[in-house]
Design a protein around this nucleic acid. Structure first.
Length: 319
DNA sequence: AACTCGTCCAACCGCTGGATA
DNA sequence: TTATCCAGCGGTTGGACGAGT
C-alpha cells in the first residue's frame, strides 16, 4: 500500500484561490447526490480541479446548508467570549456551541473584533486602576487575572461517548475524587461505543426555542450530562484547579441511565455538546469579566449580571 | 481620480492523531 | 507493528474592499 501523491501537491494542475459559482454548484450537486466524505477522491469524481482538502473546506465553511449567514449577534458575541475564556483557541469546539457558525468564521471574528475589544478593555482597566483618582472596590478575595486563570485544555478529537454527572449525589472527598472516580467515569463512558445511538443534532428538542443555542443544562433535570467529547483526564485536573474542586462534581453514575436519556448534541458538529452547569461556568468565567468588563462586573455587586448569559440561554426554553 | 492604508475573511498550509490495510 | 490514509484542527496568508488623504 504505497502512499500516493499528496492530496494538494503543487505540481498537480489544481486550481487554487477563490471558488466560482460554477464550482460551488458542482460541489453542492455532487454532495447532494453522493454525500460528503472521501474528500481525496471527490474532486476527480465530481469533475473539479481542486484538491480534496479545498473541497472539504469549501463545503464546511460555505456550502453546507445549515450555515448561518449574517452578523454575529450580541448573544453569540458574549458566548464566544465566554467559551474562548474557557477553551482557548479551540475554534471548532467553540463553533460547536454556536449553531450554524463555523470555526473559521469564529476564529476570524475573534481575531478581527473580539481580541481587539478585549485588549482595549484590558488597557482601559489598567489605566483606570493605575489612576490616582480611581478607588479600587474592596475585594474579599483576590481575583485572579485572565492570564492566571487556567484554560481547559481540550483535545478536539471526534468522540461521542457521554458522561453523566449527578449533582444530587454527595461530593466525594477531594483526594478520593482524584484517584477513583475519573477512571471509572472514563471506563463507563467507553462501555458503549455505538455512535448510532447518537441522534442528529437537528432532531433534538434541546436546540429549539432557545435562539438556537444549546442550553448548558436543562434546569429541573435531576442530572446533568457532561460529554466526554472534549475533555481528557488532564482536563479534569485543570478543571479541578480552575473551579476549585471540579472533581467533586464528577460522580460516577450508572451508564445505563445515560443511554435512556436524550443526548445533548451540538447542532453544528456531529459531536455531542459539552454541557457545563451554570455554577461551573460562572466560576470559570467570573474572573475574566471582572478583569475586562465595565464597573457593574468589576464591582460584582450584581450577581445577576454574572449569570445573565447562561440563564438567558436556557431560561428562554423554559418560558 | 488616484493612491495608501487598514480591515475583513475565504482559502491555504502544515501538522496531528485515529483508522485501516 | 508499521506504514499510510484521511479528516480535522489552528495558524497564516493574500486578495477584495472601504475609508481616508
Amino acid at each position: 500500500m504505497g502512499r500516493s501523491s499528496p492530496c494538494c501537491s503543487k505540481s498537480q494542475d489544481l486550481k487554487r484561490g477563490a471558488w466560482t459559482a460554477d464550482e460551488d454548484k458542482i460541489l453542492r450537486d455532487y454532495i447532494r447526490l453522493h454525500g460528503h466524505g472521501r474528500w481525496r477522491n471527490l474532486p476527480q469524481k465530481a469533475g473539479l480541479k481542486r484538491c480534496g482538502k479545498s473541497c472539504r473546506l469549501r463545503w464546511l465553511n460555505y456550502l453546507r446548508p445549515d450555515i448561518k449567514r449574517g452578523n454575529i449577534s450580541s448573544d453569540e458575541d458574549e458566548l464566544i467570549i465566554r467559551l474562548h475564556n474557557l477553551l482557548g483557541n479551540r475554534w471548532s469546539l467553540i463553533a460547536g456551541r454556536l449553531p450554524g457558525r463555523t470555526d473559521n468564521e469564529i476564529k476570524n471574528y475573534w481575531n478581527t473584533n473580539l481580541s481587539k475589544r478585549i485588549n482595549n478593555n484590558k488597557d482601559h482597566n489598567q489605566r483606570r486602576n493605575t489612576s490616582s483618582s480611581y478607588v479600587q472596590p474592596p475585594q474579599t478575595e483576590p481575583t485572579p487575572s485572565k492570564i492566571d486563570f487556567p484554560l481547559i485544555r481540550t483535545k478536539a478529537t471526534k468522540c461521542s461517548k457521554p458522561l453523566l454527572i449527578n449533582n444530587n449525589n454527595p461530593p466525594l472527598p477531594h483526594n478520593a475524587a482524584q484517584s477513583t472516580p475519573l477512571p471509572l467515569l472514563l471506563e463507563s463512558a467507553t462501555a458503549n461505543n455505538d455512535n448510532q445511538n447518537m441522534q442528529p443534532a437537528t432532531t433534538t428538542t434541546t436546540t429549539t426555542g432557545n435562539n438556537g443555542f444549546v442550553p448548558f443544562f436543562n434546569e429541573g433535570d435531576d442530572k446533568e450530562l457532561l460529554s466526554k467529547t472534549d475533555l481528557l483526564i488532564d482536563d479534569y485536573c485543570n478543571l479541578d484547579d480552575a473551579a476549585g474542586g471540579f472533581h467533586d462534581l464528577l460522580i460516577n453514575s450508572d451508564v445505563s441511565d445515560l443511554m435512556g436519556d436524550e443526548l445533548l448534541l451540538s447542532p453544528y458538529s456531529d459531536q455531542p455538546a459539552t454541557v457545563f452547569s451554570d455554577d461551573i461556568l460562572n466560576q470559570w468565567t467570573h474572573s475574566y469579566f471582572a478583569a475586562t468588563d465595565d464597573d457593574h462586573h468589576v464591582n460584582n455587586d450584581n450577581d445577576n449580571d454574572d449569570v445573565s448569559i447562561t440563564n438567558r440561554h436556557f431560561h428562554q426554553s423554559n418560558d
